[in-house]
Amino acid sequence: MTPFDYQRAADAAGAVAAGVRGGAKYLGGGTNLVDLMRETIERPDCLVDVSCLSGGIDETPDGGLQIGAGVTNAAVAADRRVRERYPLLAQAILSGASAQIRNMATVGGNILQRTRCGYFYDDAARCNKRRPGDGCDAVDGFNRNHAILGASPACVATHPSDMCVALAALDAMVTVEGPAGPRQVPLIGLHRLPGDTPQIETVLEPGALITAVTLPPNGISARSRYRKVRDRSSYAFALVSVAAGLEMEGDTVKDVRLALGGVAHKPWRALAAEAALRGRLLTDAALQGAAEAELSPARGLRDNVFKIDLARRVIVDSLSSLAQAREIVR
């Protein structure tokens, strides 16, 4: 680990003042950043500890919830309001990492965690994230965990978060404190696809600090589910995960939310599939068609072609089980 200065921020403004300087990084729970620093992939010269800031979960005037960026993953998943009104989010968080890591990791840090691509982690490999222009050894290497949607020749890495997949499905808004003041960014617009610049992973400007995530009220929570498919039954990153929510009117889809994890450089909101279903009768053919609409641009690599079929199966199964399930009465 490269030497650095450590400072604890007193408030968001103070944090941004310190964080805007080149070489500074915000420290939340540290579960990803400390690991990357130990690998010398991240070499900040200053850590601004923001884990003590924005620690609450509050009601919003429109009946949603605002979750502070410093709240731990465990605290979000255990919050009764989240469990009742956004069970999809609680499930997604609980499917991720381990209890220990969820106790440390913060909401802000989870959003900004970096890929687990083995070639990104190995300094001996070529990686355009670590050294732009270097090339990508994952394209023709071990890429079982890599992207099938939205990838580029420069980068086929995936975003590893589960929480973000649920947030994408729930239309979450991210509050960002920046050098130019606060602003709101939709979660689904926060992460970038890799293109030619995979080292630039979000739309956030240098020094910007995530302070909160806001969940609007929705009608899908009573019929929603997060299903994560992985290579062991727990404590593993997703091969494919699906956050799905349905609101029905009789046999017709009133609203549907669908987001995928483990398939792209960002949490993947399946807008094409949603559009294919909204207002339609929910039949098997409609479900297959919706999955096809989303996955027709998908491209497999050496080791991950199966993920296209797997994603289709889990999308179809998740939505059809939600349709069959009786609405959970609370």
């Binding site: 687990r116 083995g118 070639y119 982690y121 190995d122 001996a124 490999a125 050894d137 023709d140 290497g141 071990f142 290579d231 062991r232 039954s233 727990s234 404590y235 593993a236 990153f237």
Partner: peptide, 19 residues
Amino acid sequence: RSGRIMNPSLAEYHVPVHL
């Protein structure tokens, strides 16, 4: 291609967990 082990960690080399 490189003779390099690419999953040199307990996160990427899966051993059985409790579940």
